[in-house]
Design a protein around this nucleic acid. Structure first.
Length: 928
RNA sequence: GGGCGCGUAGCUCAGCGGAAGAGCACUACCUUGACAUGGUAGGGGUCACAGGUUCGAUCCCUGUCGCGCCCACCA
């Protein structure tokens, strides 16, 4: 027995357990060994994270695909797993230590700290996986992977070593984006440009050979800057070679204020005469552009900051001394350990006091910030590891250009191309502890040894140094045998790799690479990657590069880019804004199915989703509707008939519904194939509610309750058949309620051959053309009677007579065969056929007849007249519009013939209608 | 500074060359033996604006105005 109401929270857990017990989501099930494989790799969520609405959308769409393909008989592998999320996780653990007043990361030391992180992973690592299960995700959990698993780590090391061997990974000293609060380099992608209200300070740099006079512009050159504190590291002033204002100064020197350093005035195209004063200070150690200028002019790099972005001049004393100076460094300038922003203030104050500040104007500009820490990023000179992304990008570009991987929607390919074509070296080293430690060891001379294992690196290094004579053979032997003897002779690189380095290998590392596993052979390349646009660069592009480099083939055939989930007002959800909607309470309140259906139905390509609770509520109601339709079937003994053939049904009503079902199946298949989840959702929703429930169930009631046993049997079988097919069609979207109904509807009758999750997707059935015409006539008639009743304010409980005047023989036959249905649905007491309309009737004009409702004593003649006149006005305006078209020689001459013919037919129908409404109005006059 | 997208019913959004659609909200009526998490009927739109292409434009093109996002090293 189906319960009166469906309570998602009471059954979802139980149903998920049944799927897992049955191994329904296992890839490579024996009976599907010969089936076509279908593979999706999950975008791995942060291992210690929790499910947010973006995950819910992302995984719902993947699950729709996975369940759909599984039901279509494919051998589906939805490969799950989690990401170690280097920076994010390390930050969380550090914050926890701080909150619990425990020693910090540095105090703990690397080993102890990592223990804490692993402990946190063990504690919270299962959360998001369980949340995915609550959403209904049909991943093959037996294959769950983690980016820091032994196997995946092996893949990471192998890739690093091979790329290094081929010169595609290298170490370089250059400016990087330095996050001073995290104390690590980050990649370009992890930098967010944020608009900031700052100042543009105009500073006078005295000319060397003049006596500075703030009122005499010929004694100084004015530069403009947003970062005055970096002036301590200035090594030049650049002007544009064509700039007449400054041409005479090129080759001369300016004296750097406060510091007294003698710096050249150089000509360089980088300087833009339109910007600032046209003269720009050059600080190669603290600005990416200046770095390039410095290279061109062979300028020195003077780093004035430390890793925490505090002023640190002492380290550069040698530089300061080495450079020619015409004045002593101001002894009161003691910025050691001074915060960069405090230093900025102080320097401005000093400049102003010395008459060196020409002006300070408010200035809005973009300032780089770390996307994790929100700290102002500092261009900083360090040694880092880089991937030569340019060298890998070529094949990745080619693969998309050739269509071996396609983006859906296609417009994202442009974004991909633009980025790939201008790709920069990828900085992959991070000064963190949580992650894959770089497999590089350094000798005392800084020579680097990269190898897959420590043993290999050590033996190569020792052999090398024994050869050069740096160590004796005895020392080499000792160090080879006793690891503790190696330090500090041989030191491993302390840094770890960017999290995205391991993510880039995900489509093949999860399948077992570098081992040649059967899974790798069977499921790679994967079929679809489902993700959102914000990680096209971070992840998709890099998977393309790595997949092509190491597997020789694209990692996925289709990249489906879905929208971002926003809050009700359209703002991006973020923890800092506090507008994150947690999917779990939503699932608890409305059920996972309702949330899933909402997300899928709103996943129209190219538009962000503004999630509203009301929408979820609406789809919860839809699940309830389905539930009740199944209860109806049950109460009427509609039981699944084994071997039921929809093509064999005789009754028009049944023929109509199986035809409509066929159309719906085709629509859904096409929509999913095109990744139009919203269309697929709309299609099934409409079929279930508006076609099956509103009409089929209502029309079949008289048959089910009638006396014709043969008709009854066919109706029951059809009702059950369509219900079963609905459950299948809806299952990818609403897996829980459909699976539950699949079970309970089989409590009576034959047992199900399998869980719904493993049931075969519906075949497109027969198409009975004539049935549609007949049932549409019936629906139209009933709707019109209802409409007139409502307009005439006929009380709902009042039964009225229906008198048909005119009409073809076929119409009269239909009228009699649907006698019971019409009486029931239109609240009609009797159906008669007459030669002329009864008095005091409301008159309904149908295609070929006049349907009259005698309303003696009820009818309001004025209202009826108004109603008919309104219809008349509508028809007349239709006719006028069609006439205008047909009267246009260009239209008749140039429009396709079928369009013109269509207009003519419409014109004819409208004209008939106009005449008949006119007659009805005439009669009304006579009656009144 | 480049690039992308969006302005359609009160709200959230489909549609994107041949008579304007959905859900929610709203109005009226209805506890009818599946369902009030429901049923029936209804109101509501110069499809941002201006030009152009076309026999015909919400749909294609151009521009304008609003809004959003992405990329970029501009003092």
């Amino acid at each position: 027995m189906i319960d009166r109401t469906y309570q998602p929270s009471a059954v979802e857990g139980r149903i998920y357990a049944r799927w897992e017990e049955a191994g329904a989501f296992r890839a490579g099930r024996p009976e599907r060994r010969d089936a076509q494989p279908y593979c999706i790799v999950i975008p791995p969520p942060n291992v210690t994270g929790s499910l947010h609405m973006g995950h819910a959308l992302n995984n719902t769409l993947q699950d729709v695909l996975a369940r759909f393909e599984r039901m279509r008989g494919k051998d589906v592998l939805w490969q799950p797993g989690t990401d170690h999320a280097g920076i994010a996780t390390q930050m969380v653990v550090e914050r926890q230590l701080m909150e619990h007043q425990q020693p910090g990361r540095r105090a703990l030391g690397r080993e102890k700290f990592l223990e804490k992180v692993w402990a946190w992973k063990a504690e919270s690592g299962g959360t998001i996986i369980n949340q995915l299960k609550r959403l209904g995700a049909s991943c093959d959990w037996s294959r769950e992977r983690f980016t820091m698993d032994e196997g995946l780590s092996r893949a990471v090391v192998k890739v690093f070593v091979e790329l290094h061997r081929d010169g595609l990974i290298y170490k370089d000293k250059r400016l990087v984006n330095w996050d001073p609060t995290l104390g690590t380099a980050i990649s370009d992608l992890e930098v967010q440009q944020v608009e900031v209200n700052g100042n543009l300070w105009h500073i006078r740099y005295p000319l060397e050979d003049r006596t500075f006079d703030s009122s005499d512009p010929s004694t100084f050159i004015t530069v403009a800057t947003t970062r005055p504190e970096t002036m301590l590291g200035d090594v030049a002033v650049a002007v544009h070679p064509e700039d007449e204002r400054y041409r005479h100064l090129v080759g001369h020197y300016a004296i750097l204020p406060l510091v007294g350093r003698r710096i050249p005035i150089i000509a360089d195209e980088y300087s833009d005469p339109e910007k600032g004063t046209g003269a720009v200070k050059i600080t190669p150690a603290h600005d990416f552009n200046d770095f390039e200028v410095g290279r061109r002019h062979d300028l020195r790099l003077i780093n004035v900051l430390d890793v925490e972005a505090k002023l640190n001049l002492a380290d550069n004393e040698a530089f300061l001394q080495a450079l020619p100076r015409s004045a002593e460094l101001d002894e009161t300038l003691s910025y050691h350990g001074c915060d960069r922003f405090a230093a900025r203030k102080d320097i401005v104050r000093r400049l102003e006091a010395a008459g060196l500040l020409a002006k300070a104007e408010p200035h809005i500009h973009m300032v780089p910030h770390g996307d994790r820490s929100a700290a102002v990023i500092e261009p900083f000179l360090t040694d880092q590891w880089y991937v030569d992304a340019k060298a890998l990008a070529g094949r990745a570009l080619e693969a998309v250009r050739e269509g071996r991987t396609v983006f859906v929607p296609k417009s994202w390919e442009k974004t991909y191309f633009d980025w790939m074509e201008n790709i920069q070296p990828w900085c992959i080293s991070r000064q963190l502890w949580w992650g894959h430690q770089i497999p590089a060891w350094y000798g005392p001379d800084g020579k680097v040894f990269v190898a897959e294992t420590e043993d290999e690196a050590v033996s190569r290094a020792l052999a090398f140094y024994a050869e050069t004579g740096a160590i004796s053979p005895d020392q080499a032997r000792e160090m080879a045998l006793q690891p503790e003897q190696r330090s500090p002779f041989l030191m491993r690189d302390e840094d770890v790799l960017d999290t995205w380095f391991s993510s880039a290998l995900w489509p093949f590392s999860t399948l077992g690479w570098p081992d040649e596993t059967p899974e790798l052979k069977r499921y790679y390349p994967t079929d679809a990657l489902v993700t959102s646009f914000d990680i096209i660069f971070f992840w998709v592009a890099r998977m393309m590069m790595m997949g092509l480099r190491f597997m020789g083939e694209v990692p996925f055939r289709t990249v489906y880019i879905h929208a971002l989930v926003r809050d009700e007002r359209g703002a991006k959800m973020s923890k800092s804004k506090g507008n994150v909607v947690d999917p779990i309470p939503m699932i608890e309140e409305y059920g996972a199915d309702a949330l899933r259906f909402t997300l899928a139905a709103m996943a129209a390509p190219g538009r962000d989703i503004k999630l509203s609770k009301q929408r979820v509520e609406g789809y919860r109601n839809f699940a309830t509707k389905l539930w009740n339709a199944c209860r109806f079937a049950e109460m009427n003994d509609c039981v699944t008939v084994p071997g039921f053939d929809p093509g064999s049904v005789k009754d028009t009503l049944n023929r109509w519904i199986v035809t409509s079902l066929s159309d719906t199946i085709a629509e859904i298949e096409q929509a999913i194939a095109d990744y139009r989840f919203n269309d697929a959702g709309a299609s099934i929703y409409h079929f279930v509610w508006n076609t099956y429930c509103d009409w089929y169930v209502e029309l079949v009631k008289p048959i089910l309750q009638g006396a014709d046993d043969a008709a009854k049997a066919e109706a029951r079988a059809t009702t059950a058949h369509v219900r079963d097919e609905i459950l299948k069609l809806l299952h990818p979207f609403m897996p829980f309620v459909t699976e539950e109904l699949w079970r309970v509807t089989a409590e009576v009758g034959p047992a199900r051959a399998s869980l719904l999750a493993l049931a075969r997707w519906p075949e497109r059935g027969p198409s009975f053309g004539a049935a549609a015409e007949e049932i549409n006539w019936l629906i139209d008639l009933v709707s019109k009677i209802r409409s007139v009743r409502a307009e005439m304010n006929v009380p709902a409980a009042t039964q009225v007579r229906l008198v048909l005047v005119g009409g073809h023989a076929r119409t009269r036959a239909w009228l009699s065969s649907y006698d019971a249905a019409i009486k029931r649905l239109a609240r009609v007491s009797s159906i008669e056929i007459a030669d002329k309309p009864p008095p005091a009737s409301a008159q309904i004009i149908t295609a070929d007849a006049l349907a009259c409702l005698p309303l003696q004593g009820i009818i309001d003649f004025a209202a009826e007249k108004a109603r008919l006149e309104k219809e008349m006005a509508r028809v007349k305006s239709d006719i006028a519009r069609i006439d205008a078209k047909l009267g246009n020689a260009d239209f008749v001459g140039r429009a396709p013939e079928e369009v013109v013919e269509g207009e003519r037919e419409k014109r004819e129908e409208a004209e008939t209608r106009r005449r008949r409404i006119g007659e009805a109005l005439e009669r009304l006059k006579g009656a009144a």
